[in-house]
Nucleic acid binder design. Structure first.
Length: 872
RNA sequence: GCGGGCGUGGCGGAACUGGUAGACGCGCUGGAUUCAAAAUCCUGUUCUGGUGACAGAGUGUCGGUUCGAUUCCGACCGCCCGCACCA
C-alpha cells in the first residue's frame, strides 16, 4: 500500500456547498429580524436597487460590504435588521414599454424576480420577509397619505416656476436628468418652460438641515460638505432702491440682494434678470427688450457655454436712486448673467470689487469706483487701481462716508444697521437650496392624490379613497403622459361639491419613493399606517447606510427632508434617518475598442503576450483606461457568470480585497482567479490541519509549547485587529490579516514537534478562530468548515470569538537602533525594558559600533519598545 | 473660479497619535513536482553598486521644523471629484 499515492484532497465544490448553505439559512429563517428589547439593535441598510433587469458589479460590491457589517454585528450579539427592497418606479420601465411593447408593471416585476434570484445566489444575510416594491399600491398608498398630511401642514404647494422641459418626451425633467443642456434620454436641447407644478417645501428646513450636518459624525466629511454647499447659506442684505424714469417720476422700488453691502458706495449700475417681473413689464411695449429677453433664454445652461458667454445687458429707461447717497442715481439694465432663481433676481453692480460686474461695466463704459483698499501695516492702507481689474480681497473701506477705515466685516454690520435704521434695507440670510419640484408628466410613478375642480380649485383626494391606483390599461403608442390621455381615469367628481372634476395626472418624482422606504422596512405590510410607531422607534434610525456617493446630495437630502416633514406632522420625533453613512467606490474595468471604433466586451477579447486581440479574428484591440463599468462602453462583467464560474464567496472576497472600499476598484481577471485560488487553498489548509487536530471539545491544556503560543498569539491578535478593521470599514486590511493568519496556520504543522499536544490544540483553536473570522466575508465556505470542525450549530448563529488579552502583547520586542536617525540594526529587548537597559543594549549593537567609528555619542534618544537613536 | 480629496515598488495597496517605509495580494525570477502542461509547493523580488557581508539613494518637486518626517508647516507641479454667471 505504501506505493499508492495519497488520495488528492478534494477540491472545494462551491456550487454544491453554496446552494446547500443558502438553503439552510432560508429554511431556518436565520436572518429574520424580530423586535427584541432585550438586545441592542443594529439596522444595516444598503441603498435599494432600481430593478433595471440584472444586478451589476456595483450592486455586488455594495451588498457585500453591507453583508460583512450585518453578519459581523450579528455575531457580536446585535439584533440586526438587514432588509432589501426595490426602487421600482421610474422612467426606464416606460422606455421599455415603448421600445419592447411590454407593460411597465410586467417588465418591472420580471426584473425583480430575476434580480432577487441573483441576490439570493450571493448568500446575503437578508430578511426577505420584509421585501417591498415602491410600485406596489400597498406601499404608495401611505406615501399619498403622507403627502396629504404635508399639504395640510403647508409643506406641499403648487407654484408656477421655470422648469426643464424635454420637447421630445413631453415631460418635465429633474435637473439631474439634464446633461449638458440636453435631455438624458432623447438628447434634445431642454427648453425652459414656465409651468405650475407641485413642490415640497424643503427650504423650510434649510437652516436646520445645514446645522445638523455637524452632528452627523459618522457621515463622510465629503458628503457633509457637498450638502452644505448645496444648501448654500450666505449672509447679506436686501436693499430697496427707489426707481424713477428719465423725467424723474416715481417708478416704485427695486429690491436687490447682496452679500457685499459694505461696497454699496461703489455701486455704478443696477441689473435685473431677464425673467424679472419688471423686465417683463417693460418688455410689453419695447420690442428691443423682447428680443433681448428671447436671446437670453436661448443661451444654454451648459458649463462651457456659461463660461464663454459674454455678459450682455439692455439699458432700461429707468434710474435707481442710491439709498445712502442723496442725489446719486445709477442706470438700470436687464442683464443676461442675473439669475431669477437666486436672491431677488436683481443686483447692484460694484465693478471695482467683483469680476463679473467689472466685465459688464467695462463693456458699457460705466464708472468703476474703488471702495476697498489693500490693508497694509498698522492702520495704513494702499489704494489699488481697479480700472483694469477688480480688487476682490478683504481690506479697508474707503470713499464710503461713515464706513471709511473699517474692515469689510465691520463695515457690513454697520451698513446693515444704517439701512435698517432708515428703512431702506435689512440684513438677511439667503439659501441656494430651492424647493423640491416633485411633479412628473409620467405614467410609471405614484399618482399625486389631488383633484382639480373648476369651482373648488385644487382638492385633496379624501383619505377613504386612497390609494389612488395607477390604471393598468394604458397605451404607449405616443409620447407624453399616458395618464393624461386615458379615456376615463382622470374624470372624477369633486369630493367637495360633487361636480365633474379632473384628477391630477402628474405622478411623483421617484425620489419620494426612496425618501422613506427605510421607515417602511420597520413595519412591512402594515395596512393602517406607513409604520408601527413602536417598531419604528425600536429599529430606526438606520445605524449603517451604505451606497454610492452619487446620492450624496439628492437622495440623502430628500430623505433628511422627508424625515423632518414626518416629524412636522407628528408621525415621528426623529430628526435624522441615517446615523452612519458609508459611500463606496465604483467598480471599474478597462475599455476595449476594435479598430473600427466598436466597443468590445471583456469576454470578447484576449491577452496575447503583451497585446490584446479580439477573440473572433485575432485583430488588435485598443485598450482604454479603466472606467466605471457601463453598458455603453461595454466594459462590464456579469456577476451571474462570475458566481457561476467561481462562486459567490470568490466574488465577495475579491470585492473586499486590495482596494479600500471607499475608493474605486479595478475589476481584473487576475484578481478574481487570485481570490478563487485562495478559497481553494483555504479549503486545503483546513482539510490538512483537520487531520491533525484533537476532537472538538478537547479541554484546554494547562501549558503551551513555544510553537503553540506563537500560533495562539497570531490567532488572537487577528481577532482584535480584524474586529477593529471591520468596524472601521478597512476591509482590505482585514483581508490582508486573514491571509497572514492563513499562512501561520498553514506553516504551523510543519514546525510542530510530533507529539506536541498543546500545539495541536492550538492548531484547532486557530482554525476555529479563522473560520469564524471569515464568516462575514465568505459565509458559505465558513459554514462548511465550521461543520467540518464538528459543530452542529450554524456559524451564522455562533458568537464572534473574543481574544485573550494576555496573548495580544508580546513579551519581547524588536527595537530599532539608529545612528543619527538612520537605521543601523535591531535589538531584541524584553517588553517595557528600562531606558537605561535599552541604551546599553543599543550601544553594544555591532552594526552601530561599527558605524560609530570610535566617536562618542553626543546624545541618546530612547523611545521605549520602539527605537534607540544615537546622535553623534 | 470656489470647495474637497489624492500623489508610496512593475501593479492594487499597508505603515496606529512623527519612531525599523513597502504588510498582504497580484505579477515576475529561479527551483521542486510532471513525459509535458495546468494546479500545487519552495525561493527571491524598492532602486543603484557589489559574488558577498555591505554601502548609497528613496514615499510628486523644492524648502522648513525635528534626534528622527510618507506623516507636521510653506511654496510649487500633476491627477481626480463636487459645485459653478449664486450677486
Amino acid at each position: 500500500m505504501s506505493s499508492t499515492p495519497t488520495a488528492p484532497i478534494a477540491r472545494y465544490n462551491f456550487h454544491e456547498t453554496e446552494a446547500r448553505w443558502q438553503k439552510a439559512w432560508d429554511e431556518r429563517q436565520t436572518f429574520r429580524a424580530v423586535m427584541d428589547h432585550a438586545k441592542p439593535k443594529y439596522y444595516v441598510l444598503e441603498m435599494f436597487p432600481y430593478p433595471s433587469g440584472r444586478i451589476h458589479m456595483g450592486h455586488v460590491r455594495n451588498y457585500t460590504q453591507g453583508d460583512v457589517i450585518a453578519r459581523y454585528k450579528r455575531a457580536r450579539g446585535f439584533n440586526v435588521l438587514h432588509p432589501m427592497g426595490w426602487d421600482a418606479f421610474g422612467l426606464p420601465a416606460e422606455n421599455a414599454a415603448m421600445e419592447k411593447k411590454v407593460h411597465p408593471k410586467k417588465w418591472t416585476y420580471e426584473n425583480i424576480a430575476t434580480m432577487k434570484a441573483q441576490l439570493k445566489s450571493m448568500g446575503l444575510s437578508l430578511d426577505w420577509s420584509r421585501e417591498l416594491a415602491t410600485c406596489d399600491p400597498s406601499y404608495y398608498r401611505h406615501q399619498q397619505k403622507m403627502f396629504l398630511d404635508f399639504w395640510n401642514a403647508g409643506l406641499a404647494y403648487r407654484k408656477e416656476a421655470w422648469v426643464n422641459w424635454d420637447p421630445v418626451d413631453n415631460t418635465v425633467l429633474a435637473n439631474e436628468q439634464v446633461i449638458e443642456g440636453k435631455g438624458w434620454r432623447t438628447g434634445a436641447p431642454v427648453e425652459r418652460r414656465k409651468l405650475t407644478q407641485w413642490n415640497l417645501k424643503i427650504t423650510h428646513f434649510a437652516d436646520e438641515m445645514l446645522e445638523r450636518l455637524d452632528t452627523l459624525k459618522r457621515w463622510p466629511e465629503k458628503v457633509r460638505l457637498m450638502q452644505a454647499n448645496w444648501i448654500g447659506k450666505s449672509r447679506g442684505a436686501r436693499v430697496f432702491w427707489d426707481l424713477t424714469d428719465a423725467s424723474g417720476a416715481d417708478r416704485g422700488k427695486l429690491e436687490i440682494f447682496t452679500t457685499r453691502p459694505d461696497t454699496l458706495y461703489g455701486a455704478s449700475f443696477m441689473a435685473l434678470s431677464p425673467e424679472h417681473p419688471l423686465t417683463a413689464e417693460l418688455a410689453t411695449n419695447d420690442p428691443g427688450l423682447q428680443r433681448f429677453v428671447a436671446e437670453c433664454r436661448k443661451t444654454g445652461t451648459a458649463a462651457a457655454e456659461i463660461e464663454t458667454a459674454e455678459k450682455t445687458g439692455y439699458k432700461l429707461p429707468l434710474l435707481a436712486r442710491h439709498p445712502l447717497v442723496p442725489g446719486k442715481t445709477v442706470p438700470v439694465y436687464a442683464a443676461n448673467f442675473v439669475l431669477m432663481e437666486y436672491g431677488t433676481g436683481a443686483i447692484f453692480g460694484c465693478p471695482g470689487h467683483d469680476e463679473r460686474d467689472h466685465e459688464f461695466a467695462t463693456k458699457y463704459g460705466l464708472p468703476i469706483i474703488a471702495v476697498v483698499a489693500r490693508h497694509a501695516d498698522d492702520d495704513k492702507w494702499s489704494e489699488v487701481d481697479v480700472q483694469k481689474a477688480p480688487f476682490v480681497e478683504d481690506g479697508v473701506i474707503i470713499n464710503s462716508d461713515f464706513l471709511n477705515g473699517l474692515d469689510v466685516e465691520e463695515a457690513k454690520a454697520k451698513v446693515i444697521a444704517r439701512l435698517e435704521e432708515i428703512g431702506v434695507g435689512k440684513g438677511t440670510t439667503q439659501y441656494r437650496l430651492r424647493d423640491w419640484l416633485v411633479s412628473r408628466q409620467r405614467y410609471w410613478g405614484c399618482p399625486i392624490p389631488a383633484i382639480h375642480c373648476d369651482k373648488c380649485g385644487i382638492v385633496p383626494v379624501p383619505e377613504k379613497d386612497l390609494p389612488v391606483k395607477l390604471p393598468d390599461d394604458v397605451t404607449f403608442d405616443r409620447p407624453g403622459n399616458p395618464l393624461d390621455r386615458h379615456p376615463t381615469w382622470k374624470h372624477v367628481h369633486c369630493p367637495k361639491c360633487g361636480a365633474a372634476a379632473l384628477r391630477e395626472t402628474d405622478t411623483f418624482d421617484t425620489f419620494i419613493d426612496s425618501s422613506w422606504y427605510f421607515d417602511r422596512f420597520t413595519s412591512p405590510g402594515l395596512e393602517t399606517a406607513p409604520f408601527d410607531r413602536e417598531e419604528n422607534q425600536y429599529w430606526m434610525p438606520v445605524d449603517q447606510y451604505i451606497g454610492g456617493v452619487e446620492h450624496a446630495i439628492l437622495h440623502l437630502l430628500y430623505s433628511r427632508f422627508w424625515t423632518r416633514a414626518m416629524r412636522e406632522v407628528q408621525m415621528t420625533s426623529r430628526d435624522e434617518p441615517f446615523d452612519g453613512l458609508f459611500t463606496q467606490g465604483m467598480v471599474c474595468h478597462e475599455t476595449y475598442r476594435s479598430s473600427d471604433g466598436q466597443w468590445l466586451l471583456p469576454e470578447e477579447v484576449s491577452r496575447d503576450g503583451n497585446k490584446v486581440v479580439r477573440l473572433s479574428d485575432r485583430a488588435p484591440v485598443d485598450v482604454g483606461r479603466s472606467e466605471k463599468m457601463s453598458k455603453s462602453k461595454k466594459n462590464v462583467v456579469d456577476p451571474d457568470q462570475i458566481i457561476r464560474d467561481y462562486g459567490a464567496d470568490t466574488a465577495r472576497w475579491f470585492m473586499l480585497s486590495d482596494s479600500p472600499p471607499e475608493r474605486d476598484l479595478e475589476w481584473t481577471e487576475a484578481g478574481v482567479t487570485g481570490a478563487w485560488r485562495f478559497q481553494q487553498r483555504l479549503f486545503r489548509i483546513a482539510s490538512t490541519a483537520l487531520e491533525q487536530v484533537p476532537p472538538a471539545g478537547t479541554p484546554k491544556p494547562a501549558s503551551f509549547s513555544d510553537a503553540a503560543t506563537l500560533l495562539r498569539r497570531a490567532a488572537h491578535k487577528t481577532i482584535a485587529g480584524l474586529s477593529a478593521d471591520i468596524e472601521a470599514f478597512h476591509f482590505n486590511k482585514a483581508v490582508a490579516r486573514l491571509y497572514e493568519l492563513a499562512n501561520s496556520i498553514d506553516s504551523a504543522p510543519k514546525s510542530m514537534v510530533a507529539d506536541d499536544a498543546s500545539a495541536k490544540w492550538a492548531l484547532r483553536e486557530a482554525l476555529e478562530i479563522f473560520v469564524r473570522l471569515i464568516g462575514p466575508m465568505t459565509p458559505h465556505l465558513a459554514e462548511e468548515l465550521w461543520q467540518a470542525l464538528g459543530h452542529r450549530a450554524l456559524l451564522a448563529d455562533s458568537p464572534w470569538p473574543l481574544p485573550e488579552d494576555a496573548l495580544l502583547v508580546d513579551d519581547t520586542v524588536t527595537v530599532a537602533v539608529q545612528l543619527n536617525g538612520k537605521l543601523r540594526g535591531t535589538i531584541a529587548l524584553p517588553k517595557d525594558a528600562p531606558k537605561e537597559a535599552a541604551e546599553i543594549a543599543a550601544l553594544a549593537q555591532p552594526d552601530l559600533v561599527r558605524g560609530l567609528e570610535g566617536r562618542t555619542p553626543k546624545r541618546v534618544i530612547v523611545v521605549p519598545n520602539r527605537i534607540v537613536n544615537v546622535v553623534v
